[in-house]
């Protein structure tokens, strides 16, 4: 190709590059960057959702209010309990399940699909099913009574504060266990065969192979899954919302997103809701940054 012709083609191409990207960029400016800027801005104002009065500047007022508010700390604590309570069993058991499934020669695909199936449900449907299971006459009480050898004991899944928290954790665990098992299976599948073969030639048994080869090499995947689960858990909304709207007490499961929603929509307090959003955003920012860093380093692990 001649030099000058190539040059003009480059210029033309540059223009087309912009044309292809422009609509998406415009979209993100209006629907991502403007709103987050606006949330930060509004967090310094007092504004009622319904009133036509212009927002009134209050400085750090909303943040000061939140930091001294029991309700806010309660919802921080609820979110933390939910996140920790979900994330540890979810990460540990999805790793174990992935290792177990990969050690099978039969039914691998079937087991993956069976475990994954709840993830195909919408979270609203999941909440609906489990509300009936946690009903005093539901399967949860029947199962626990069967295990404990008792009969007719009601474990108050939806009314006792701690049982209610446990219920939301069980639901979430149930819905996502298959999803993260599959993430781990992808990680295990990414470990080159020759490493296992070398271990087996050296006389390692399956357990040693897993403990000394698979597990250490899965560390980046484990870290990544942990951060992903944490991000997911911090954003949990549907389960808690649906449980509270169908009569469960709000206080034990008033997580941060539910609190933002209620502050804005029920209390009409836009400023305070924005301040909560900004705080949530900061936590997520750190976690997402961590996730990016881990997923970038992960690619070179097996070199």
């Amino acid at each position: 190709m001649q030099q000058h012709k190539g040059f003009s083609m480059e210029q033309k191409k540059a223009r087309w590059g912009w044309i292809f990207v422009a609509p998406t960029l415009a979209f993100f400016l209006v629907f991502s960057f403007y709103p987050i800027g606006n949330a930060i801005y509004m967090s310094f104002f007092k504004k009622n959702l319904l009133s036509l009065k212009p927002p009134e500047f209050v400085g750090w007022g909303n943040y000061k209010y939140l930091f001294s508010s029991d309700m806010f700390w309660q919802s921080v604590a609820n979110t933390a309990i939910f996140t920790v309570g979900t994330f540890i069993p979810l990460v540990v058991l999805s790793l174990v399940l992935a290792a177990f499934i990969m050690s099978r020669t039969k039914l691998q695909k079937f087991l993956q699909m069976a475990l994954y199936s709840p993830a195909a449900l919408s979270s609203v449907v999941a909440a609906l099913i489990w509300l009936l299971i946690f009903d005093p006459r539901g399967l949860a009480n029947q199962a626990l009574n069967f295990i404990n050898g008792t009969s007719g004991v009601n474990y108050h899944w939806l009314s006792n504060a701690n049982m209610l928290r446990l219920s939301t954790i069980i639901l979430y665990f149930w819905k996502y266990i298959g999803y993260f098992t599959i993430v781990f299976i992808a990680g295990i599948g990414g470990i080159p065969d020759y490493l296992h073969e070398a271990a087996l030639i050296d006389g390692a048994n399956r357990w040693q192979d897993f403990w000394h080869i698979t597990f250490p090499l899965l560390k980046p995947t484990t870290l990544l899954v942990s951060v992903m689960v944490m991000i997911q858990c911090l954003k949990t909304f549907s389960t808690q919302y649906l449980f509270t709207t169908s009569g469960a007490p709000t206080r034990p499961i008033d997580v941060i997103t539910l609190s933002i929603y209620n502050t804005a929509i029920k209390d009409h307090n836009i400023g305070r809701a924005s301040a909560m959003s900004v705080l949530l955003f900061l936590v997520m920012l750190v976690l997402t940054w961590l996730q990016f860093r881990i997923s970038r380093t992960e690619e070179v692990t097996y070199m």
Binding site: F28, S32, F33, Y34, P35, I36, N38, A39, M42, I231, K235, F237, T257, I260, Y261, A264, I270, A273, S274, S277, V278, L280, F281, M284, L285, T288, W289
Partner: peptide, 12 residues
């Protein structure tokens, strides 16, 4: 924009 979760910008 991946770092901006929907939950934090829903009000604006």
């Amino acid at each position: 924009t991946m770092m901006i979760p929907f939950e934090t910008i829903m009000i604006p």
